[in-house]
């Protein structure tokens, strides 16, 4: 055995456990989901699963509820992530300033991340509830009518976004803050010496240097938000009408309540494809480090 092929063999042996884990935990489930999506497979049905061809996917194309849930998901992800990013960014800068007491505040601000999403949903459900919610109590204190936070189309969406923002803004802050802390001081000094104003330093130096962190946090949050189901489960069940029915909730009700695994898998597969495509386009468009 030549030295080179021996090295290659060693590499193969060393890498194979990781590959195996990847195949077992990632590739197999996805492949199996594709397999299920091509079959009539209902746990509730007495009939055994049978091949369905593209039936489930053809069904998707004429399913208004599916398109509605896509639209709702898109709205939720866009609104939520944009607000989290702006707010998280601003907070990161506040925490980065060397004011006293901010360290404690910064640590406290991480609490929402550590809370279970289901609990967050429950807490906001109670706070926004129209009959005994504390927020509506405040609203009535100011002489206003109680607001239908969870039962009016726009307000319900905003309420879900609010809960998500409450929980995940600290995460954005954490990442941006860490990135800010790792920016070398001398670059800012160079900027000042080169005659840039504070504003120009922010836009020409700080922001571009934070770009990798921003992109990472954006992708993580967008994908995460796209999968969000707990808040819907606790707060609106997708209502009113279908105003807050995000795709994962539709998939959940189809797969786990109606037990129509085939159709749910078809939706899940479509969702994976859409998310992957979106992430790709996104990464190419925004993350391309080439041009300035």
């Amino acid at each position: 055995m030549s030295q080179k092929s021996e090295a290659r063999w060693t590499a193969t042996v060393l890498v194979s456990p990781a590959v195996l884990v990847l195949v077992l935990l990632n590739i197999f489930p996805i492949a199996f989901a594709v397999y299920i999506s091509l079959r009539h497979w209902s746990l509730a049905s007495p009939n055994p699963p049978r091949f369905a061809g593209d039936f489930n996917f053809a069904e998707l194309l004429v399913d208004d509820r599916f398109f509605n849930s896509l639209w709702v998901s898109g709205t939720f992800v866009t609104l939520g992530v944009v607000i989290q990013l702006l707010l998280g960014f601003a907070l990161a800068f506040v925490f980065n300033s060397k004011l006293r007491g901010l360290d404690t505040l910064r640590r406290l601000s991480l609490l929402p991340i550590m809370t279970m999403p289901l609990v967050v949903g429950l807490v906001w459900f109670y706070m926004l509830n129209e009959n005994f919610g504390v927020i509506n109590w405040f609203v009535t204190l100011f002489g206003s009518e109680r607001l239908p936070f969870l039962t009016e189309r726009t307000l319900a969406m905003l309420s879900i976004v609010l809960a998500d923002v409450w929980q995940w803004t600290p995460f954005v802050t954490l990442v941006i803050f860490a990135a800010l802390q790792s920016l070398p001081e001398y670059v800012f000094e160079a900027g000042r010496m080169d005659g840039l104003t504070e504003r120009e330093i922010f836009f020409r130096i700080t922001l571009p240097m934070l770009r990798p962190a921003i992109i990472v946090v954006l992708i993580i949050r967008a994908i995460d938000a796209f999968r969000m189901i707990e808040l819907i489960f606790m707060m609106t069940k997708g209502g009113p009408g279908g105003a807050t029915e995000v795709l994962p909730w539709y998939i959940y009700t189809t797969g786990f309540l109606s037990l129509d695994l085939g159709y749910a898998a078809a939706m899940a597969v479509t969702m994976i494809i859409l998310v992957t495509l979106a992430a790709q386009v996104f990464v190419r468009q925004i993350a391309d480090p080439g041009k300035n």
Binding site: P184, Y186, V187, A190, I205, M209, N292
Partner: peptide, 10 residues
């Protein structure tokens, strides 16, 4: 600057 202080992103 001693450590050059170039803008790494440009």
């Amino acid at each position: 600057f001693e450590n050059y202080a170039l803008y790494p992103h440009l």
